[in-house]
Nucleic acid binder design. Structure first.
Length: 300
DNA sequence: CCGGCTACCTGCCGGC
DNA sequence: TGCCGGCAGGTAGCCG
């Protein structure tokens, strides 16, 4: 379940290892992965022969700028991996759906058992064509973020990325006060804040001492500042440890290395265990059809 | 406009 | 031992 820290880990690895290389050939063996395109053939025609100029991230999306104004966009979904390989002789994992042959040398493969992940080539909007950028992005994102959204229309609906410029606590306060929804629903709504999913929302809310079901507009200024700080701190710490790799899922970076942040999880997946702060039992509830872990004593 | 529900998928695990 | 239901959850699309 790659969320922002896992996607950032992949981005950083590919910034070192993919940028500057040319995609000589692409092979697509599961068309569902490129479902935004009319055909796999169309997708191949758009990527083959292109060089990769940069590796960026917006929320949980990877954005690789091509040498022709277009961008290759990748979302890992629930179980997607981008894996480097030395060449075609390296054994292909099951569920390898796309293989890029790179120049110089090697391959980049997209492996995704559950096929919730996808990739597509985004062409810049035609001159004069306007792109509707999400109102939460407009509210707080600086020039780069807005420009990036305008360049990739498919991602223009995304809200604030927690690491984008100009994401101050006062702007964040305006976002929270504009909704009456439960905090967890706000944190995981990609059109408001992008990059946070089920695991990190629970960890962030525990760090902030706030319950998942607190109405977002009910927070005091101090609570808003605490939540704002917790978002940055938890995600930064998770990135430092290469993201989280849970026992039942298989996140690894492009070199096949798992993350280690799971050992620092305070509440996620710890139902019945002692809260690290008060030693009371961590509770698990189903919220919006998803598991939510929290400490009823430390979070209010 | 907004919130809530479901479909899309495969692997894994517990129960029978 | 084998089958089957439930669960995992990110996003898009639909509906009220």
């Amino acid at each position: 379940m790659p969320e922002l820290p896992e996607v950032e880990t992949v981005r950083a690895a590919l910034a070192r290892d993919l940028v500057g290389k040319k995609i000589k050939a692409a092979s697509v063996t599961n068309g569902r992965v490129v479902r935004r395109h009319k055909s796999a053939k169309e997708f191949r025609a758009l990527v083959e022969g292109r060089s990769v100029r940069s590796a960026e991230r917006l929320g949980k999306y990877l954005v690789f700028a091509h040498d022709n104004q277009a961008n290759l966009v990748v979302h890992l979904g629930m179980s997607g991996r981008l894996l480097r390989a030395k060449g075609p002789k390296d054994p292909k994992p099951k569920h390898t759906h796309v293989v890029f042959t790179l120049s110089p040398g090697g391959e980049l493969r997209f492996v995704d058992p559950r096929t919730f992940g996808e990739m597509f080539v985004s062409s810049p909007p035609a001159p004069g064509e306007t792109v509707e950028v999400s109102k939460f992005a407009r509210l707080s994102v600086g020039g780069d973020g807005l420009a990036r959204r305008a360049r990739v229309p498919e991602l223009a609906h995304l809200g604030l990325d927690p690491f984008e410029d100009q994401y101050g606590w006062d702007r964040f306060a305006a976002v929270l006060r504009s909704r009456t929804t439960a905090l967890k629903a706000v944190l995981t709504d990609q059109d408001i804040l992008c990059g946070i999913g089920n695991i990190y929302s629970d960890e962030i809310l525990f760090a902030a001492g706030l319950r998942y079901d607190r109405p977002s507009e009910s927070l005091s200024t101090i609570e808003i500042r605490r939540l704002h700080r917790s978002i940055t701190e938890v995600l930064t710490e998770a990135i430092k440890h290469g993201g989280s790799t849970l026992e039942d899922e298989q996140f690894v970076d492009p070199e096949g290395k798992p993350g280690t942040y799971q050992q620092f999880h305070q509440v996620y997946g710890r139902e019945g265990q002692a809260c690290p702060q008060c030693r009371g039992p961590i509770e698990r509830v189903t919220f919006h059809g998803r598991s939510t872990f929290f400490c009823p004593r430390c979070q209010s």
